[in-house]
Design a protein around this nucleic acid. Structure first.
Length: 261
DNA sequence: ATGCCCCCGGTTCGGGGA
Protein backbone atom coordinates (compact mmCIF):
# COMPACT_ATOMS: atom_id res chain seq x y z
CA UNK A 1 0.00 0.00 0.00
CA UNK A 2 1.60 3.24 -1.17
CA UNK A 3 0.04 6.56 -0.08
CA UNK A 4 1.20 9.86 -1.57
CA UNK A 5 0.66 13.60 -1.19
CA UNK A 6 1.27 16.09 -4.01
CA UNK A 7 0.56 19.82 -4.22
CA UNK A 8 -0.03 20.14 -7.99
CA UNK A 9 -0.39 23.96 -8.22
CA UNK A 10 -3.36 23.77 -10.62
CA UNK A 11 -4.42 20.38 -11.98
CA UNK A 12 -5.33 21.90 -15.34
CA UNK A 13 -1.99 23.67 -15.81
CA UNK A 14 0.06 20.64 -14.74
CA UNK A 15 -2.03 17.65 -15.82
CA UNK A 16 0.75 15.96 -17.89
CA UNK A 17 3.09 16.14 -14.89
CA UNK A 18 0.42 14.60 -12.65
CA UNK A 19 -0.66 11.78 -14.99
CA UNK A 20 2.96 11.00 -15.89
CA UNK A 21 3.81 10.67 -12.21
CA UNK A 22 0.67 8.56 -11.47
CA UNK A 23 1.72 6.13 -14.23
CA UNK A 24 5.29 5.95 -13.00
CA UNK A 25 4.75 5.70 -9.24
CA UNK A 26 1.28 4.10 -9.31
CA UNK A 27 0.35 4.97 -5.71
CA UNK A 28 -2.69 3.21 -4.25
CA UNK A 29 -3.92 6.53 -2.89
CA UNK A 30 -2.90 10.09 -3.75
CA UNK A 31 -3.99 13.29 -2.04
CA UNK A 32 -3.73 16.36 -4.27
CA UNK A 33 -3.73 19.97 -3.12
CA UNK A 34 -4.22 23.26 -4.95
CA UNK A 35 -6.23 21.73 -7.78
CA UNK A 36 -7.55 25.30 -8.35
CA UNK A 37 -10.76 24.26 -10.08
CA UNK A 38 -14.37 23.47 -9.26
CA UNK A 39 -15.46 19.83 -9.06
CA UNK A 40 -17.02 19.84 -12.55
CA UNK A 41 -13.78 21.07 -14.11
CA UNK A 42 -11.62 18.34 -12.55
CA UNK A 43 -10.02 16.15 -15.29
CA UNK A 44 -11.81 13.09 -13.98
CA UNK A 45 -11.76 11.04 -17.20
CA UNK A 46 -7.99 11.32 -17.65
CA UNK A 47 -7.37 10.17 -14.08
CA UNK A 48 -10.06 7.48 -14.05
CA UNK A 49 -8.41 6.09 -17.20
CA UNK A 50 -5.38 5.33 -15.03
CA UNK A 51 -7.49 3.25 -12.67
CA UNK A 52 -8.35 5.83 -10.01
CA UNK A 53 -11.57 6.76 -8.31
CA UNK A 54 -11.72 10.53 -7.73
CA UNK A 55 -13.27 12.45 -4.84
CA UNK A 56 -12.86 16.20 -5.09
CA UNK A 57 -13.51 19.25 -2.94
CA UNK A 58 -12.83 21.99 -5.45
CA UNK A 59 -12.90 25.76 -5.46
CA UNK A 60 -12.69 28.29 -8.25
CA UNK A 61 -9.19 29.76 -8.83
CA UNK A 62 -7.71 28.95 -5.41
CA UNK A 63 -7.09 26.00 -3.12
CA UNK A 64 -9.08 22.80 -3.73
CA UNK A 65 -8.16 19.24 -2.70
CA UNK A 66 -8.80 15.76 -4.10
CA UNK A 67 -8.34 12.13 -3.13
CA UNK A 68 -7.52 9.54 -5.81
CA UNK A 69 -7.73 5.85 -4.95
CA UNK A 70 -7.32 2.55 -6.76
CA UNK A 71 -9.49 1.01 -4.05
CA UNK A 72 -12.98 1.48 -2.72
CA UNK A 73 -13.36 4.90 -1.04
CA UNK A 74 -16.16 5.55 1.48
CA UNK A 75 -17.30 8.04 4.16
CA UNK A 76 -15.97 11.05 2.29
CA UNK A 77 -15.76 14.20 4.43
CA UNK A 78 -15.43 17.58 2.72
CA UNK A 79 -14.23 20.45 4.87
CA UNK A 80 -12.43 20.35 8.21
CA UNK A 81 -15.01 19.16 10.78
CA UNK A 82 -15.90 21.76 13.39
CA UNK A 83 -14.52 24.67 11.37
CA UNK A 84 -16.68 26.96 9.24
CA UNK A 85 -14.39 27.49 6.24
CA UNK A 86 -15.11 29.29 2.98
CA UNK A 87 -12.00 27.73 1.44
CA UNK A 88 -11.65 24.13 0.20
CA UNK A 89 -8.72 22.74 2.14
CA UNK A 90 -9.70 19.37 3.62
CA UNK A 91 -11.01 16.05 2.32
CA UNK A 92 -10.96 12.71 4.13
CA UNK A 93 -12.13 9.20 3.34
CA UNK A 94 -11.79 5.59 4.34
CA UNK A 95 -10.00 3.29 1.87
CA UNK A 96 -10.84 -0.41 1.64
CA UNK A 97 -8.32 -2.41 -0.44
CA UNK A 98 -9.53 -5.86 -1.47
CA UNK A 99 -8.01 -8.35 0.93
CA UNK A 100 -5.91 -5.65 2.62
CA UNK A 101 -6.07 -3.48 5.70
CA UNK A 102 -8.28 -0.36 5.45
CA UNK A 103 -6.86 3.14 5.96
CA UNK A 104 -8.45 6.38 7.12
CA UNK A 105 -6.85 9.16 5.11
CA UNK A 106 -7.16 12.92 5.53
CA UNK A 107 -5.71 15.18 2.84
CA UNK A 108 -5.20 18.85 3.64
CA UNK A 109 -3.90 22.18 2.43
CA UNK A 110 -3.00 24.35 5.40
CA UNK A 111 -3.23 28.13 4.83
CA UNK A 112 0.06 29.86 4.02
CA UNK A 113 -0.41 32.56 6.67
CA UNK A 114 1.76 35.34 5.29
CA UNK A 115 2.14 38.18 5.92
CA UNK A 116 2.57 38.31 9.70
CA UNK A 117 0.66 39.85 11.32
CA UNK A 118 -2.52 39.81 9.25
CA UNK A 119 -5.97 38.26 8.98
CA UNK A 120 -4.30 35.44 6.98
CA UNK A 121 -1.93 34.69 9.83
CA UNK A 122 -4.85 34.55 12.29
CA UNK A 123 -6.73 32.28 9.89
CA UNK A 124 -3.77 29.87 9.66
CA UNK A 125 -3.55 29.61 13.44
CA UNK A 126 -7.30 29.07 13.83
CA UNK A 127 -7.21 26.46 11.07
CA UNK A 128 -4.37 24.58 12.78
CA UNK A 129 -6.22 24.63 16.12
CA UNK A 130 -9.28 23.11 14.46
CA UNK A 131 -7.08 20.47 12.81
CA UNK A 132 -5.52 19.69 16.17
CA UNK A 133 -8.96 19.24 17.76
CA UNK A 134 -10.16 16.96 14.96
CA UNK A 135 -7.04 14.75 15.03
CA UNK A 136 -7.11 14.64 18.84
CA UNK A 137 -10.66 13.30 18.64
CA UNK A 138 -9.79 10.74 15.97
CA UNK A 139 -6.84 9.48 18.00
CA UNK A 140 -9.13 8.61 20.92
CA UNK A 141 -10.92 5.84 19.03
CA UNK A 142 -8.45 4.29 16.59
CA UNK A 143 -10.44 1.79 14.51
CA UNK A 144 -7.99 1.72 11.60
CA UNK A 145 -4.62 3.27 10.64
CA UNK A 146 -4.92 7.05 10.14
CA UNK A 147 -2.78 9.13 7.79
CA UNK A 148 -3.11 12.94 7.95
CA UNK A 149 -1.14 14.22 4.98
CA UNK A 150 -0.77 17.22 2.76
CA UNK A 151 0.80 20.61 2.35
CA UNK A 152 1.17 21.75 5.96
CA UNK A 153 2.99 24.98 5.06
CA UNK A 154 5.23 24.34 8.09
CA UNK A 155 8.94 23.58 8.24
CA UNK A 156 9.10 21.60 11.51
CA UNK A 157 12.84 21.98 12.22
CA UNK A 158 15.90 24.04 11.24
CA UNK A 159 17.10 21.33 8.86
CA UNK A 160 13.87 21.59 6.87
CA UNK A 161 15.09 24.74 5.09
CA UNK A 162 18.38 25.98 3.75
CA UNK A 163 18.69 29.14 5.86
CA UNK A 164 16.63 28.99 9.09
CA UNK A 165 17.68 32.49 10.18
CA UNK A 166 16.19 34.00 7.03
CA UNK A 167 12.89 32.21 7.67
CA UNK A 168 12.58 33.01 11.38
CA UNK A 169 9.70 35.47 11.10
CA UNK A 170 7.91 33.81 8.17
CA UNK A 171 4.48 32.24 8.65
CA UNK A 172 5.93 28.88 7.56
CA UNK A 173 8.55 28.83 10.28
CA UNK A 174 7.61 31.14 13.15
CA UNK A 175 7.70 29.78 16.69
CA UNK A 176 3.90 29.54 16.77
CA UNK A 177 3.69 27.00 13.92
CA UNK A 178 6.70 24.97 15.02
CA UNK A 179 5.18 24.87 18.49
CA UNK A 180 1.93 23.68 16.93
CA UNK A 181 3.82 20.92 15.13
CA UNK A 182 5.47 19.69 18.34
CA UNK A 183 2.13 19.60 20.18
CA UNK A 184 0.60 17.87 17.17
CA UNK A 185 3.30 15.17 17.13
CA UNK A 186 2.77 14.71 20.86
CA UNK A 187 -0.75 13.47 20.08
CA UNK A 188 1.09 10.34 18.95
CA UNK A 189 1.70 11.17 15.30
CA UNK A 190 4.84 10.09 13.44
CA UNK A 191 6.34 12.28 10.71
CA UNK A 192 6.83 9.48 8.15
CA UNK A 193 9.71 10.98 6.14
CA UNK A 194 11.63 12.28 9.14
CA UNK A 195 11.26 8.95 10.92
CA UNK A 196 13.16 7.35 8.01
CA UNK A 197 15.92 9.92 7.50
CA UNK A 198 17.74 12.64 9.42
CA UNK A 199 19.43 13.87 6.24
CA UNK A 200 19.68 17.59 5.55
CA UNK A 201 18.32 18.99 2.28
CA UNK A 202 15.34 16.65 2.40
CA UNK A 203 13.02 19.05 0.60
CA UNK A 204 9.55 18.85 -0.98
CA UNK A 205 9.21 22.37 -2.42
CA UNK A 206 11.41 24.69 -4.47
CA UNK A 207 10.19 28.19 -5.31
CA UNK A 208 9.95 29.15 -8.99
CA UNK A 209 11.85 32.34 -8.16
CA UNK A 210 15.48 33.23 -7.58
CA UNK A 211 16.91 29.99 -8.98
CA UNK A 212 15.68 28.07 -5.96
CA UNK A 213 15.63 24.73 -7.84
CA UNK A 214 19.13 24.85 -9.44
CA UNK A 215 20.54 26.11 -6.14
CA UNK A 216 18.64 23.42 -4.22
CA UNK A 217 17.22 26.13 -2.00
CA UNK A 218 14.17 24.12 -0.94
CA UNK A 219 11.77 23.60 1.94
CA UNK A 220 10.24 20.52 3.56
CA UNK A 221 6.60 21.49 4.05
CA UNK A 222 4.65 18.48 2.70
CA UNK A 223 4.19 15.78 5.32
CA UNK A 224 2.55 12.41 5.97
CA UNK A 225 1.65 12.17 9.65
CA UNK A 226 0.88 8.67 10.90
CA UNK A 227 -1.18 7.40 13.80
CA UNK A 228 0.42 4.57 15.83
CA UNK A 229 -1.49 1.90 13.86
CA UNK A 230 -0.22 3.42 10.59
CA UNK A 231 3.35 3.91 11.88
CA UNK A 232 3.45 0.23 12.89
CA UNK A 233 2.95 -0.69 9.23
CA UNK A 234 5.41 1.85 7.73
CA UNK A 235 7.98 0.20 5.45
CA UNK A 236 9.65 3.11 3.62
CA UNK A 237 9.16 6.65 2.35
CA UNK A 238 10.23 8.59 -0.70
CA UNK A 239 10.28 12.03 -2.27
CA UNK A 240 9.93 12.04 -6.06
CA UNK A 241 12.34 14.94 -6.50
CA UNK A 242 12.98 14.26 -10.19
CA UNK A 243 9.43 15.44 -10.98
CA UNK A 244 10.55 19.02 -10.19
CA UNK A 245 12.99 18.85 -13.12
CA UNK A 246 10.38 17.98 -15.76
CA UNK A 247 8.78 20.47 -18.15
CA UNK A 248 6.06 22.60 -16.59
CA UNK A 249 6.38 21.23 -13.04
CA UNK A 250 4.50 22.16 -9.90
CA UNK A 251 6.70 23.91 -7.35
CA UNK A 252 6.07 20.96 -4.97
CA UNK A 253 6.98 17.30 -5.59
CA UNK A 254 5.15 14.11 -4.54
CA UNK A 255 5.97 12.56 -1.17
CA UNK A 256 4.92 9.00 -0.34
CA UNK A 257 4.95 6.32 2.30
CA UNK A 258 4.75 2.58 1.73
CA UNK A 259 2.90 0.35 4.20
CA UNK A 260 2.87 -3.39 4.80
CA UNK A 261 -0.37 -5.21 4.07
C1' DA B 1 13.63 34.97 1.13
C1' DT B 2 12.23 38.13 -2.87
C1' DG B 3 12.78 43.07 -7.26
C1' DC B 4 13.43 37.83 -9.81
C1' DC B 5 8.41 33.06 -11.15
C1' DC B 6 4.02 30.98 -11.92
C1' DC B 7 -1.22 30.44 -11.90
C1' DC B 8 -5.82 32.42 -12.17
C1' DG B 9 -9.44 35.42 -14.08
C1' DG B 10 -10.50 38.04 -17.65
C1' DT B 11 -7.47 41.68 -19.24
C1' DT B 12 -2.70 44.24 -20.83
C1' DC B 13 -2.86 44.04 -14.25
C1' DG B 14 -3.93 42.48 -9.37
C1' DG B 15 -4.37 38.76 -6.00
C1' DG B 16 -2.22 34.82 -4.26
C1' DG B 17 1.37 31.70 -3.46
C1' DA B 18 5.82 30.32 -0.01
Amino acid sequence: MRIATYNVNSIKAHLPAVTGWLRERAPDVAGLQEIKCVDDAFPRLEIEALGYRCETFGQKTYNGVALLSKHKMEDVTRGLPGFADEQSRFIAARIYPKGGAPFHIANLYVPNGNPVPSEKWDYKQRWLEALFAWVEGEMKSPDMPLVVMGDYNIMPEDIDCHDPKAWRDDALFRNEVRQFFRRYRALGLTDAVRSCTSAKETYTFWDYQAGAWPKNNGLRIDHLMLSPLAADRLVSTGIDKHVRGHDKPSDHVPVWAKFAG
